[in-house]
């Protein structure tokens, strides 16, 4: 396979000079290496390493195995939700409702378990719920033609409100213990959420890079009109990505139920910020058409590590919120300057 991102190479060529010197020759090892270094993902990966080094120096208890275990688990939850909204962002859309979908899928599957439904079926019902809510977003965006921002902003409120209505504000606490392994177990010392996250990442990466569907998602973000004129059903694809975002939020939601041994009504509240920020820090363009799964994972790691670092440094929760916001804006500023 060729390197994922030949951007560095095409930049070096500048404009094509009209002479097919060595038409379509394969890329050489050295060029590949240069290409990898020029990749956006490498830059943010270095940033992640830098941040980790600084935190290790300031807060020595960062690099302990116990802390790394907890941080990686926490990052996994955000990363999964982020991968979902990432597919939406690739088409040039946005999903602000994912936090509420996290909540409602958790509550629905929790209620199923409380009512004595088999735990696997309960999980399935939770996932279907998330998928359906996402699909409603998608239908309204594609076929009714409302802007994604408004649709998902409304859904944020509707889904969260529905949680309050269904539960009357009480958490669901009779959770089948067999699901706890999803978030509290580990295999060979690796937390199960990390394994789930890696598994999902590989699938999403593969779908986006190697299938017709993924190709079309990127094409829509790159130029929607050209894609439509190429005979591609843009509406259908857009609808599907919102459903995917809903599904990923639901997976996160059920894992959070397993994490806290109960379905909290406020579960997922405000998570859209972290999930979207992770994708954007990881190089996804809000205009659509650009970004990678690896970038999203690194973005989620940056968010998680900084959050954890602030806790270890005993910085107050009030400051933490402000600092996280600052980092998101800073990432956008750096990106803007770099692309100028």
């Amino acid at each position: 396979m060729l390197p994922g991102n030949p951007e560095g190479l095409s930049m070096a060529i500048e404009t094509e000079v009209g002479v097919p010197i060595e038409k379509r020759r394969p890329l050489r090892v050295r060029e590949t290496l240069v290409g990898v270094l020029k990749m956006r993902e490498s830059a943010i990966f270095l940033a992640l390493l830098g941040i980790m080094i600084v935190i290790t120096i300031v807060a020595p208890n960062f690099a302990t195995s116990g802390n790394i275990y907890r941080v990686s688990r926490q990052i996994s939850f955000v990363a999964i939700a982020s991968l979902g909204v990432f597919t939406v962002i690739l088409t040039g859309g946005i999903d602000l409702s994912l936090g509420s979908i996290i909540g409602i899928s958790g509550v629905i599957s929790g209620l199923c378990m409380e009512a004595g439904v088999h735990y696997l079926l309960s999980i399935g019902i939770g996932l279907v719920t998330g998928c359906l809510v996402g699909a409603i977003n998608g239908l309204l965006v594609s076929y009714v033609g409302i802007t994604p921002f408004i649709v998902t902003l409304g859904m944020l409120s509707m889904a969260r409100g529905s949680i309050w209505i269904i539960t009357k504000g009480w958490p669901v606490e009779n959770i089948d213990e067999r699901i706890l392994v999803l978030s509290q177990g580990d295999i060979l010392g690796i937390p199960v959420p990390v394994i789930i996250m890696l598994f999902i990442s590989i699938i999403v990466h593969f779908v986006m890079r190697s299938t017709v569907f993924g190709r079309r998602v990127y094409a829509i973000g790159g130029n929607e009109e050209a894609t439509r004129l190429s005979g591609i059903d843009v509406k259908k694809i857009k609808c599907i990505v919102y459903a995917i975002s809903g599904l990923m939020a639901a997976i996160t939601g059920i894992m959070l139920v397993a994490r806290f041994n109960s379905a909290q009504t406020s579960s997922g509240d405000g998570w859209e910020l972290d999930a979207i920020a992770a994708a954007v820090i990881g190089g996804a363009s809000l205009q659509g058409g650009a970004g990678s799964v690896i970038g999203v994972l690194i973005g989620a790691a940056i968010m998680g590590v900084i959050r954890n670092g602030l806790v270890l440094m005993k910085i107050s929760a009030y400051w933490q919120t402000a600092i996280m916001g600052l980092i998101i804006v800073l990432a956008a500023v750096i990106d803007r300057i770099k692309n100028r």
Binding site: L9, S10, I13, E14, T15, E16, R24
Partner: peptide, 25 residues
Amino acid sequence: NRYIDELDIRVYSSEQKVSTLSGGN
């Protein structure tokens, strides 16, 4: 590759971004 040859499209690699090509290509 077939169309690059048939239409004599001058590209450096089929992995080149189309934004870097001339209008004719």
